[in-house]
Amino acid sequence: MDPSSTGIQEPFDLIRLSLSERVFVKLRGDRELSGVLHAYDGHMNLILSDVEETVMIVDAVDGTLEGQGTVAKRKMEMLFVRGDGVILVSPPSRM
């Protein structure tokens, strides 16, 4: 497969190029993280530092369509993320 203009040949290249950068991570259970990526492996286990976690708390009232969820935020200095919870990782935009 010929590399695209961005020089990415396999999906993990995207992660490799984001080492030491701030990344956005979407996790199962309506969690999102923003932190500096220090390490990853083939399971997508991650080590992040200076992390802000955002948890969407969907109100238990059923029948509510979209919106009206509260968000809880908290900060962690250093974090290990187990890979199986990862849905998406987005590096900072490179222009």
């Binding site: 990415i8 995207l14 849905i87 987005s90």
Partner: peptide, 10 residues
């Protein structure tokens, strides 16, 4: 997102 990595199991 400019770029996005999506884990395959999802």
């Amino acid at each position: 997102y400019g770029d996005a990595f999506i884990r395959g199991n999802n």
